[in-house]
């Protein structure tokens, strides 16, 4: 999957995406991290055919999303930001309609739906109306639906937003399992720990621009290895150090209450997007 020639998306005068170029390797779990309004969902909406490009090119599995939209869509599965199941249809019917949209045979649809509902642990509810499910169950149903046609690439747009911590962790396990099955996963999130736990590589997006792109460890290493947080009258101040010994020595010189800890991906994000001062 390739975004090239400075991908752009304009809504009126506002630039939602402003010159993004990147490449996601087959089988990779790629996380797009950024605050609300950064352009994360816009990127997924472009790649999955939900909105048009204003500039640049996007290739999904070799198919240009504008020149060959059906070819691109055939290779993708989408779990959108909004919960979008048909509440009045059963779980099996939700999956069946999706399978029909992707041209699956009746036998394949039935077998695949059975297997996927089992996979996401919803098989006992297959004949229930989707409207009776909890929020976490609906997200699992959406993931099963997106996997129905065996997509090579799975787009997950904020898959765990609004879910309880235990449900979120359960979904993380599911996402890892899907990747282990060979799918390429493009994930957007504003939960930094989610990107850190799941992703092979992470891109920091802010204000429609790509600020950094690398593995979580490499992004953290750009900031340092250890950090000291000090609470002061102006808020929390964080200093970064290349090693534990340097951090420990520095800590002895501070009088305020402090915390000595390892650098996290959040530190890297805040520093590279220039948001440190707002903490």
């Amino acid at each position: 999957m390739i975004l090239r020639d400075n991908l752009q998306k304009k809504y009126g005068e506002r630039m939602a995406l402003n010159g993004v170029s990147l490449r996601v390797a087959p089988g990779e779990l790629f996380a797009y991290l950024g605050p609300n309004g950064a352009g994360k969902s816009t990127t997924i909406r472009i790649l999955s055919g939900l909105c048009r490009l204003s500039g640049g090119r996007a290739l999904v599995g070799g198919a240009d999303v504008e020149a060959d939209p059906l070819g691109a869509k055939r290779q993708c599965g989408l779990v959108g930001q909004h919960t979008n199941v048909d509440n009045d249809l059963s779980l099996a019917e939700n999956l069946d309609i999706h399978g029909r949209l992707f041209g699956m045979t009746a036998v394949d649809r039935a077998e695949r739906a059975r297997a996927l509902l089992d996979y996401v642990d919803l098989s006992e509810r297959r004949e229930q109306r989707a409207g009776t499910l909890s929020g976490g169950m609906k997200r699992r149903l959406m993931i099963a639906r997106a996997l129905m046609h065996r997509p090579k690439i799975l787009f997950l747009d904020e898959p765990t937003v609004g879910l309880d911590a235990d449900v979120r962790r359960r979904l993380w396990g599911l996402i890892k399992t899907i990747q282990a099955g060979g799918a390429t996963i493009f994930l957007t999130t504003h939960y930094i720990e989610e990107a850190e736990f799941l992703a092979d590589r992470v891109a920091f997006l802010d204000d429609g621009r790509l600020r950094a792109l690398d593995t979580p460890d490499a992004l953290k290493a750009r900031v340092g290895e250890w950090a000291i947080d000090r609470a002061g009258p102006d808020g929390l101040r964080t200093d970064y150090f290349p090693g534990h010994e340097a951090a420990r020595r520095a800590a002895q010189g501070f009088r305020e209450a402090l915390t000595l800890r390892r650098v996290s991906l959040e530190d890297a994000f805040l520093r590279m997007t220039g948001k440190e001062s707002s903490c």
Binding site: L50, L70, K73, G80, H82, N84, V85, L101
Partner: peptide, 14 residues
């Protein structure tokens, strides 16, 4: 309301 229309938009159908 349901956002199910996105399912059709993301599907490879004319």
């Amino acid at each position: 309301y349901l956002y199910v229309f996105e399912e059709f938009q993301a599907a490879p159908i004319p």
